[in-house]
């Protein structure tokens, strides 16, 4: 049933993405560091577009240029070429554009350690142009939403790593931005904390925000993202809807399991479709439509599972890293 779900959900996404407003548009970003011989082109022509409510996973090996790209989007690093627009404004020209950006940056403390959770929310709220009272109110709501209400008066220093990360995300939302940039949001978190952060990111996207996240945990990316962009040595080598990308790398073999024994007639019919039978398990290679003909043959046996042999993002990623030339999409 996985298959059917995938089809439906990607179709939905593909249809609606066109109608939703564009939140982030970055075109042809280029950034080099250093001079002369030591000159190094960290980012070489990266373009990204994000719509409301969508999550883009920005993947790539260490040093590929993810953080540099994110910082160019956030106005913290000036691109050598290319431009960024957030809700129609360029953060490098109009600081007001930053009103629509929240960011949790990689490996950083994004918070004041001597201030409590509440105080951080209020301070950063004001810094992001939220009136103070409103910042206090929104801060309290976010603490509740993020399950930190009982920690509101604890100095950040005394919070666990997972709580600090959750708080950093809450703070990045205090001004209700349309775009959220998360650079490795689950780095260094234990399983449970990662789960909560993942759930929160889903909620945040469901609220209609666009989320750009980088991660080295590909299962996180697979679970959260609508689209994946993979960057390697400063260039984007592929950008596709997550499920489409995975499908593209998945075999077209289905594995069906039934409850009970197949009659010889059924077995013959399956063989005629090119399928093979192994006890109560049927393997079948064919188009998604012929799969339904096969399912008819199995009637009335109860189905236990229907699944396509499915690649996961890790396999996709590894294949792309080995041989990027094969799968370049323009």
């Amino acid at each position: 049933m996985q298959l059917v779900n995938d089809l439906v959900s990607t179709q939905n996404l593909d249809n609606t993405a066109g109608q939703r407003a564009i939140v982030l548009s970055a075109q042809g970003l280029v950034k080099g560091y250093g001079r002369g011989k030591r000159r190094f082109e960290a980012v070489q022509g990266v373009s990204l577009t994000l719509h409301q409510g969508s999550v883009l996973a920005f993947l790539g090996p260490n040093g590929a240029g993810k953080t540099t790209t994110i910082k160019m989007i956030a106005g913290l690093v000036r691109p050598d070429a290319g431009w960024v627009e957030i809700a129609g404004q360029n953060p490098h020209r109009q600081v007001a554009a930053l009103r629509q950006v929240g960011a949790v940056l990689e490996g950083n403390r994004n918070l004041y350690w001597r201030l409590t959770a509440e105080e951080n929310l209020e301070y950063f709220g004001v810094l992001r142009r939220v009136p103070r009272r409103l910042a206090q109110r929104r801060g309290a709501e976010l603490l509740a939403q993020f399950g930190l209400a009982d920690k509101r008066q604890t100095p950040v220093q005394k919070l666990s790593r997972g709580m600090q990360q959750k708080l950093a995300i809450a703070v990045s939302l205090i001004h209700d931005p349309q775009l959220l940039l998360l650079d490795e949001p689950t780095l260094g978190l234990d399983v449970e904390a990662s789960q909560t952060v993942k759930a929160l990111v889903k909620e945040i996207a469901a609220e209609g925000r666009a989320v750009l996240l980088t991660t080295h945990q590909l299962d996180v990316a697979e679970e959260l993202s609508d689209r994946v962009a993979i960057i390697r040595q400063g260039r984007i080598i592929t950008e596709e809807p997550t499920q489409a990308l995975i499908r593209q790398f998945s075999g077209s073999t289905y594995r069906l399991e039934v409850d009970g024994l197949l009659t010889p007639a059924q077995q013959q019919a399956i063989a005629a479709f090119g399928g093979t039978v192994n006890g109560s398990i049927v393997h079948f290679s064919g188009s998604p439509t012929s799969l339904y003909d096969l399912l008819n043959v199995l009637r009335p046996l109860p189905l236990v599972s229907v699944a396509r042999d499915r690649a996961d993002l890790t396999q996709v990623f590894l294949k792309l890293m080995q041989d990027p030339a094969d799968i370049r999409h323009d």
Binding site: V95, A103, N110
Partner: peptide, 18 residues
């Protein structure tokens, strides 16, 4: 060094004012 500086520079008020 600790990283809060970048958050400050993310302010739509602009760094000099802050």
């Amino acid at each position: 060094q600790t990283g809060t500086l970048e958050q400050v520079f993310l302010s739509p008020l602009g760094a000099p004012r802050v």
